[in-house]
Design a protein around this nucleic acid. Structure first.
Length: 442
RNA sequence: GCGGUCGUAGCUUAGCUGGUCCAAAGCGCUUCCCUGUCACGGAAGAGAUCGUGGGUUCAAAUCCCAUCGACCGCGCCA
């Protein structure tokens, strides 16, 4: 008999079905046993009655996480046993036969309980089975799909950026080295250069993939491998075109989340933010003046924002501007990568900035330099050797439109949407300073 | 890398102004009882050299030092 998914059982009342999944809980009443069965679609209560002696015998030996295939009749529950407002609360399975597909050892922790992050991470193949953990990644799937679908609708072409690269994308020292047939290659820190090259091919492109940062950070918002949602678009007027595109992407993502993930957000007591028609934006210097005026702390000489300032600005945006999001633009060009476009109307400052969301930076975006000579000069100013970027520069030598783009940190976005305290909870298998799965323990 | 906090049963924690702690609770586990439970319930039981090493003391889970590990904060960034 073909397998029926648990969420569809109410279409089969009075009929016999086969359900396959995990034993979520067993409640042994002595002469009868209750099971909660779980598959990818949901949970259902199954009851093994005393007259089904063979099934009862198996049921009494079952334990949580055993994998079973059960043939059963779908019954309406007796009136007094109906559970309102839960999936399948009005039905239950009367088990006829149980086939054990796989046994499970005793779990090393309690599924569904609050675990220390350390325990959670050391047992990911199991802890990911928790309802909340699964909810995180359902939400993440919806975010990625919404990002893709929206951009495809806007004429963007998706491409897979290489992860093995020959030269550090941004000239930084924070890339992982890889032995490559006697040469040193690197793991990509960003698809940046390839995105720009692809603008010369398709005008509008995006890429969703992992990037790697060899930074020894130890915080709740950093991963050494994270997923970057990247887009790059040609023929822009300036960086505000990119800001508008991100504004619309985020509006689409939150719309999809509202339609598809209400249950998941409820699990976390999280609210899906409203994306304003126009996300407020201010220059770094304006933001610093506000910080100085409101807190008395003078950071106006700083080239960047400290985390505490980012948190403050988000609170400010929420309270004064009624937005969970705020763009901070025009950072000093000296602190930005070589390809960043300098604002001719505000010399020394970048045509671009960061997007802050619920206390944290989730995006960096900018217009890029598209003129070959300017780009080469900018590299030299940063102490980079244009010769090493020949591959990239070819695109610019032969006609590149004005363009710009952004990178959006998927795990940070997911974590902030759901109110997770650590981005590691928003990455399936997070890599950090001390941990690649459990293979780095010495 | 620096700073802070912490490390007690499989998990989550209490105890930590030194003795009454050869360490306690909930969950999990084992055995038994239970025909309507839904985090089922009831009875009994097993399970910890209190991260590791050293020190102070008549006496250390508790105080001191070192070390390892984790988490949080910072730098850097998404």
């Amino acid at each position: 008999m073909t397998r029926t998914y648990i969420k569809n059982l109410n279409e089969h009342i009075g009929k016999e079905v086969t359900v396959a999944g995990w034993v979520d809980v067993r409640r042994d009443q002595g002469k009868m046993v209750f099971l909660d069965l779980r598959d990818m679609s949901g949970k259902v209560q199954a009851v093994v009655l005393p007259n089904h002696t063979l099934a009862l015998d198996v049921a009494q030996r079952l334990r949580p996480e055993w994998v079973v295939s059960v043939s059963a009749q779908v019954n309406k529950r007796p009136e007094r046993n109906v559970k309102a407002d839960v999936l399948n609360g009005e039905i239950e399975l009367e088990v006829l036969n149980i086939e054990v597909l796989s046994k499970a050892k005793e779990l090393p922790f309690e599924l569904g309980a609050e675990l220390n992050l350390d325990t959670y991470l050391d047992n990911l193949p199991l802890t990911l089975r928790e309802e909340k953990a699964r909810a995180v990644f359902k939400v993440q799937t919806v975010i990625v799909h919404a990002f893709r679908n929206f951009l495809v609708g806007e004429g963007f072409t998706e491409f897979q950026a290489p992860k093995l690269i020959g030269e550090d994308a941004e000239g930084g020292a924070n890339s992982f080295n890889v032995e490559y047939f006697g040469h040193t290659a690197h793991l990509a820190q960003s698809p940046q250069l390839y995105k720009q090259i692809m603008v010369g091919v398709f005008e509008r492109v995006f890429s969703t993939g992992n990037v790697y940062r060899a930074e020894k950070h130890s915080t709740t918002r950093h991963l050494n491998e994270y997923t970057s949602l990247d887009l790059e678009m040609g023929f822009i007027k300036d960086h505000t075109d990119v800001m508008n595109m991100e504004n619309r992407v985020l509006a689409h993502i939150t719309k999809e989340l509202k339609e598809k993930c209400a249950t998941e957000f409820a699990l976390f007591g999280a609210t899906i933010p409203e994306v304003p028609a126009k996300i407020p934006a201010m220059k770094l210097r304006e933001a610093q003046e506000i910080i100085k005026k409101e807190t008395g702390e003078d950071c106006t000489k700083e080239p960047d924002l400290e985390p505490a300032h980012e948190r403050f600005l988000c609170e400010y945006a929420k309270k004064e501007l009624n937005s969970d999001f705020i763009f901070i633009t025009h950072f000093p060009i000296s602190k930005r990568p070589f390809y960043t476009y300098e604002d001719e109307n505000d010399p020394g400052y970048a045509k671009g900035g960061d997007l802050l969301f619920r206390g944290i930076e989730i995006t960096t975006l900018a217009q890029r330099i598209h003129d070959y000579d300017t780009l080469v000069q900018s590299m030299k100013n940063k102490g980079l050797d244009p010769e090493k970027f020949r591959f990239y520069l070819q695109a610019f030598k032969y006609g590149m439109p004005p363009h710009g783009g952004l990178g959006l940190g998927l795990e940070r976005l997911t974590a902030k949407f759901l109110g997770l305290e650590n981005v590691k909870r928003a990455a399936l298998f997070p890599r950090d300073l001390n941990r690649i799965d459990n293979l780095l323990s010495e």
